[in-house]
Design a binder for these strands. Structure first.
Lengths: 222, 222, 222, 222
DNA sequence: CATGAATGAGTGTTCATTCAT
DNA sequence: GATGAATGAACACTCATTCAT
């Protein structure tokens, strides 16, 4: 498993300084334990086939304990999902925030995203394979969550600055374009999941490929 | 519901001539009945929440009867999936087979696919929202199925002929490029599902958009 | 256990003639099986401590089977309750219907009721000990059921005819009086449950006691 | 809620003089706190649906603390029940102790009881609706408790003195008669619970009704 | 072949009770 | 003593699958 990296940040070590009492921190730690376990179990069995007991056992807690920290199976799942996107947003902000050149930003954006998805592929696998068990209901709930909105905003900003710097076409709406980027991206990611985890150099290559195709298209320049 | 059109073909009326005995035909007919019912129920409830009994009732058969034609709930689902892709392949072959110009072919290909997905959106919705309930295992099983291979081959051919006619870049592998086309495509389709069904003119517009982006990219031409 | 007697009547043997198909009858038979089992289990463990599985096992069915016949644990319980009251109503109608003299009717009414409760004491024990687990909610639901209304009507009629025949005081409303009769009755019944089942002669004596007290009161006549 | 009045007496202020050490008194105080909380929670949710945690929270204690004072959920419930009956006994003794005339005593007895039940209706509601969740076992345990015996004795005395003063029939055993009084009483009480709380004048009216019926019966005097 | 009643393992969730701090 | 986090057994209910008719 390869996703403990954001845990700390989400728990609030460091940033918050002395903000949390020990009890609070313990609680967050335990919550994180369970989420980590849930991540593994969900990744292995998928949302529906993962029993709460499985998750509890994996986390080395009793069944009931999980419910001390999460109201619901669904709540647990959504916490996980939100955490992941939050983590992505964090990484992206940090990596792209200080870059001025739009094309560089795009390149970095793509590469960091790719890398993040790869690192968290266990989780994202299930996200893709069952966006909430069969009704898009909760999917809708999720796509309207503030964290998701924040993510959209991030991509949008990058595209917009690209348009301003005449790097990206402006005969289409930024939103439409960012959707396209998203889609190219997602399916490359999906592909990523099929094969064994790749090394850094491979990732860089793929990022380049995406950027090239995204900017120049697949059409032969005449 | 909007997808009975391919049923006949799949059942084998016409093409196969007198190949099937009456009994065989009856069997196929019943199989199709059930698949049609399953499609409706799956579309409404999603894979997991659709009970075999619901499907049986919808098909006006007894529960057990369904198991006479499909080994499993899963088998039923995969049959449905395969049938849909088969149908898409059929449509695409027919629509693009006789077109010589590569760009035209691409355009037609995109438009026909878009249209097919739209017509079958009830089904594809669940396909996207739960690719086989949570294990990619079976997804893998599916993506290696001959029908899927056939579909890949189809797209590949179009891209290759594009490359030959200097319409598509050839500094990347055809397979890679067709993946990208697929991804742009899929996410536009996914978007399609969110909104109300669109009319023909809207579809044409979207096809144009996809083709444009696909060929020219999102980069500003200097 | 001592309460299979009304089963037949409720199932509809005889009365309905050829009204029920075999399948229907089988179904009713099975339903009765389960109700009989539920009666025993409820009587032994009480409503809350009786697990559906216990009932199923007692009825020699699988857990799920019970749910084929009863929507709910609650539904099962209410069916039982209704059946019992229905049975009481039946007995009372039959026993008092043709009696003209009001005092005789009262006497018979009391005696038959007492006897019925005694015969079905296993069930009524739980009815008294947990009128629906803690909210009077369902109790309300029940007391408004048509069968219960019918029962009330029955008692009321007897009291009214008593008033008409100048056997019962008419300076109070019949409803109030029948409530009192009900209460004296119920608590004698409750007492009945504590001790071992009594013989017929004892029952007669008790009936006499109730009637005497009911009519003459506990006051010394001067 | 309307029942804190007896708390003090039960805690032992006054009567016992200096009998209790401070520690002991603290303990009793805490016990009373919890019982008060339990009363409220039970009244609102019923025995089964009241969670020990609810009670603890209501009492502003930790869950575990409750178990320091009561062995069991059941024990807590029975303590409550006993306390209530104890309170009733107290009230009755005080109100009837000095009355010489048997009919007056009866009247007072009925009225005070009615009034007590009304004041404590929140609690008694659940007592009636789930006499110990489904086993009469514990009910039996309770009805044999010394406090209950004391209560019985009280009623018995009143009836006996009635018999001596030729106000009550003596062709039946006092025990039997007091049972009857109890039953009439209980069901009037039960009725009381259904409707909104009544005012004092209404209570007096009802007491009169009970006394009349009890003494004179429902029979028409000829 | 078709039926649909029967099965019973499996699930999410609650809650009385314990016990380390 | 007090705490309240942890426990884990228990339970109502569902549903894919089977099989006697």
């Amino acid at each position: 498993m390869n996703s403990n990296s954001i845990t700390e940040e989400l728990i609030g070590i460091g940033k918050t300084g002395a903000a949390l009492t020990r009890k609070e921190r313990d609680k967050q730690l335990r919550k994180a334990d369970i989420m980590r376990a849930a991540e593994r179990v969900f990744a292995q069995k998928g949302y529906h086939n993962a029993a709460m007991q499985d998750i509890a056992r994996e986390a080395q807690y009793a069944t009931g304990t999980v419910y001390l920290y999460f109201k619901d199976k669904e709540a647990l799942y959504f916490s996980l999902l939100e955490e992941k996107i939050k983590g992505l947003n964090l990484v992206l902000k940090e990596a792209t925030g200080h870059i001025a050149d739009a094309e560089d930003r795009l390149r970095i954006f793509i590469h960091e995203s790719l890398s993040y998805f790869q690192r968290n592929q266990d989780f994202f696998k299930i996200f893709f394979s069952e966006r909430t068990k069969g009704q898009l209901v909760k999917d809708a709930k999720f796509s309207k969550s503030p964290i998701m909105a924040q993510n959209k905003e991030l991509v949008l900003k990058i595209i917009r600055s690209g348009q301003e710097q005449k790097v990206v076409r402006n005969d289409f709406e930024a939103a439409q374009i960012s959707d396209i980027l998203g889609s190219i991206f997602m399916n490359v990611v999906f592909d990523l999941f099929k094969d064994a985890p790749r090394d850094e150099s491979k990732l860089k290559e793929m990022s380049g490929f995406i950027l090239d195709i995204f900017l120049n298209g697949a059409g032969k320049k005449r």
